[in-house]
Design a protein around this nucleic acid. Structure first.
Length: 503
DNA sequence: CTGGGGAGGGGGCCC
DNA sequence: AGGGCCCCCTCCCCA
């Protein structure tokens, strides 16, 4: 900060020729010009200091290569660093901090860092995707905008070239259209470096292009999956309780292109089915049967296919495939390491790329990411509700469908097998003591609630479900009955349409 | 409208 | 690394 103060002093006193004119701008240079000149000079100074390693209070490790930088500059340039540094600064900002990345290469980060310190973005056809991907990760909307512009201009050029080619072809061989447009298979053929000037220069402002194509229909709002596309807006911080449903594609080149080309950004939607879905969750199709699971034990979430998930019935097939592809990038994301101190005993933590949350273990981050992806790999076969964790499903099944609590739901007294019974209500099962059973009269066969003597429940369509008696229930573990990790693909959902009509 | 309880979701951490 | 347990929090329902 002293440094900045000094520089400001210099600038106002001599270097900018403003002596005696600090408050009254001369006629030849407007305040904005002075400011612009001052800013660029300041940036040059900072860049010089960075290259000389002067006053650098921040280190960024990218695949083993160390970059020195100034915390202030990174903070001001990147939403990611803003989060990182603000969370790291809580304990006292004096200590050097750093970050480590494995999601992009040092070369790409160098391009970005150069942009931060110089305002020049070295975009080439062979690096634009990676730069955009990294910028997306680092939440640098300007860079993303420039990359988009670069890609767009490449597409335009390519499309134009092809159009010309087609015209020439048609002149030579008049024939029906080949069916594919230039944009459809545009290649980034421009080999020259594309330099974007940041700041108040005459560079094109491509940010407006983020709001284009409205012709794309918004994705089904009930789809709980990442479908929003890259959210390039300078996002307000989202709590982990408010799942982002941000496309994971922002962290991967191909996906980024994909999203870019579809232009779904800002297409709305995507906000439903977020957060706690008491109202929002859409039950899976009626259960197949309370049958032994296809596979017992712990499904590994890494093998879990897709977040395409739950209630994906409304989504189109290609969309689900895209979601699968996007989800395949998860390991890359998981590899992100967050803050560390540069002391001898670094406290490594894994930082969520979507929120400020950090965890000690990779596995915990993986688990945490589900709240952003909306993935719910564990469906309850009894009611179709889906859960993010096996333990939640088990707990749900035990409390809701097994009536495992030996407590009378009405009077809250402890009940035993003799002093109470399990009552079915829809797919729910709970216990009532004999007194409460008599009071409510639900012991009577044919009443609204089934008695335990005729244990059964009905699904949404009124189909009766056989239930085992309590002894069997006591023996059966919830996991044995219903725990099953499923593929959240459409096929899987279709398969689940099978109804268990018994008797 | 409010408070209590149930259900679900998420984080930390141990095995 | 995954499973599981414990704890806490939030939301929703109901009295």
């Amino acid at each position: 900060m002293d440094m900045l103060t000094d520089m400001r002093g210099k600038g106002s006193s001599g270097e900018h020729g403003l002596q005696g004119q600090q408050r009254v701008p001369c006629s030849s240079s407007s305040p904005s010009e002075i400011s612009s000149s001052h800013q660029s000079r300041l940036l040059q100074q900072l860049d010089q200091q960075r290259r000389q390693g002067l006053f650098c209070d921040c280190s960024v490790l990218v695949e083993g290569r160390l970059f020195q930088a100034h915390r202030n500059v990174l903070f001001a340039s990147s939403g990611y660093f803003r989060m990182l540094l603000s969370s790291g600064a809580q304990g006292g900002g004096a200590q050097p901090v750093g970050a480590s990345f494995e999601v992009f290469s040092p070369e790409i980060f160098s391009v970005i860092l150069d942009f931060v310190y110089s305002g020049r973005l070295e975009l080439r056809s062979d690096n634009v995707i990676e730069v955009m991907s990294a910028a997306s990760y680092l939440q640098m909307t300007d860079v993303i905008g420039y990359c988009k512009g670069f890609i767009r201009s490449s597409l335009d050029i390519s499309a134009k070239d092809e159009k010309e080619d087609e015209e020439q072809q048609q002149q030579r061989y008049p024939a029906p259209s080949s069916g594919h447009t230039g944009a459809a298979h545009a290649s980034f053929s421009c080999a020259t470096s594309w330099r974007v000037q940041n700041g108040s220069g005459a560079q094109p402002d491509y940010r407006h292009q983020q709001q284009q194509p409205k012709d794309q229909p918004p994705p089904p709002s009930k789809h709980p999956l990442p479908q929003e596309g890259l959210d390039f807006r300078p996002g307000k911080p989202r709590s982990s309780r408010q799942p982002l449903h941000t496309s994971l594609g922002g962290l991967e080149g191909d996906a980024a292109v994909l999203q870019f080309s579809t232009g779904t950004e800002g297409g709305g939607g995507g906000t439903a089915a977020t957060g706690r879905k008491k109202k929002g969750w859409t039950p899976a199709p009626p259960p197949a049967a309370l049958s032994p699971p296809d596979h017992k034990g712990a499904p590994s979430s890494s093998s879990s296919p897709s977040p395409s998930a739950a209630s994906s019935s409304s989504s189109s097939k290609p969309k689900a495939d895209k979601a699968d592809e996007l989800y395949a990038t998860l390991p890359t994301i998981v590899g992100v390491v967050g803050l560390f101190n540069q002391d001898e005993c670094p406290s490594m933590r894994f930082k969520c790329p979507f929120c400020t949350h950090t965890v000690k273990r990779k596995a915990d981050l993986k688990r945490h990411l589900r709240c952003h992806t909306g993935e719910r790999p564990y469906p309850c076969e009894a009611c179709g509700k889906r859960f993010t964790r096996l333990e939640h499903l088990r707990s749900h099944f035990q409390t809701i469908h097994q009536a495992q609590k030996l407590i009378c739901r009405k009077c809250k007294r402890h009940v035993t097998e003799l002093s109470g019974r399990v009552v079915c209500e829809g797919t729910r099962r709970y216990r009532l003591c004999n007194d409460c059973l008599l009071e409510t009269g639900c012991d009577t066969p044919g009443s609204a609630n089934h008695s335990a003597a005729e244990p059964c429940f009905e699904d949404d369509e009124g189909l009766s479900w056989p239930m085992t008696d309590e002894d069997e229930l006591a023996e059966d573990s919830g996991a044995d009955l219903i725990i099953q990790e499923v593929e959240d693909s459409d096929e899987e959902m279709d398969r689940k349409e099978v109804k268990p009509v018994i008797g």
